[in-house]
Amino acid sequence: MQAIVRLYRWSHALYGTKWHLASRAIDSISRMLFAASVPGRATIGRNVFFHHSGLGVVINGASVIEDDCEIGVHVVLGGRAPVVGAPHLGKGVIVHAGAKIIGPIHIGEGSVVAANATVISDMPPNSLITGTPATVKRTGISIKDYRKDVDSQLMDGNAA
Rank of each mutant, 00 (worst) to 15 (best):
A160V: 13
A35T: 10
G90A: 11
L7K: 01
K18E: 14
R46D: 15
G90L: 07
A42H: 08
A22Y: 04
S121I: 12
F34I: 04
I71R: 04
A3W: 00
N47Y: 13
N60V: 05
L7A: 05
A36R: 00
G98N: 07
N126V: 04
A62F: 10
D156S: 15
P39K: 01
V76I: 15
V75T: 08
G85M: 07
A97G: 03
R24V: 07
G56Y: 02
Y15V: 02
H88R: 15
S152I: 13
G157I: 10
K148A: 13
G78A: 10
A42P: 14
Q153H: 14
R41W: 04
L33E: 01
K137N: 13
W19Q: 11
V119F: 10
M155A: 12
D145Q: 02
G56E: 00
V119N: 11
T139S: 15
G16M: 04
I44G: 05
I59D: 05
F49V: 12
A86H: 06
P124E: 13
G110Y: 08
A159V: 11
V150D: 13
L21T: 10
S152N: 14
I143G: 14
A22P: 01
W10M: 06
H12L: 02
V64Y: 11
Y15K: 00
R31T: 11
G72K: 09
I101E: 07
M1V: 11
L89W: 12
L128T: 03
I65Q: 02
I120N: 08
S28I: 00
I105D: 04
F34G: 06
W19C: 08
P39H: 06
T135Y: 08
W10Q: 02
A115M: 04
S63G: 11
V95G: 08
E70M: 15
S30H: 00
A134N: 01
I94C: 11
I143W: 11
F50H: 05
R46A: 14
G131N: 10
I107G: 09
P87H: 09
V58Q: 06
G56D: 02
G110K: 02
L7T: 00
W10P: 05
T43V: 12
D67N: 15
P39C: 06
T139L: 02
M155Y: 14
G72N: 08
L89G: 12
V93I: 03
R41F: 09
P104S: 12
A99F: 09
F34H: 13
H96S: 13
D27N: 15
E70V: 14
D122T: 12
V73H: 14
V119Q: 07
E66I: 01
I94P: 12
V112Y: 04
V38Y: 02
F49S: 01
G16I: 02
I59H: 05
D149C: 06
S63F: 13
V93A: 04
R46H: 13
S30W: 00
V73K: 04
G92N: 06
I101V: 14
V38Q: 06
I44H: 03
A62D: 12
G61C: 10
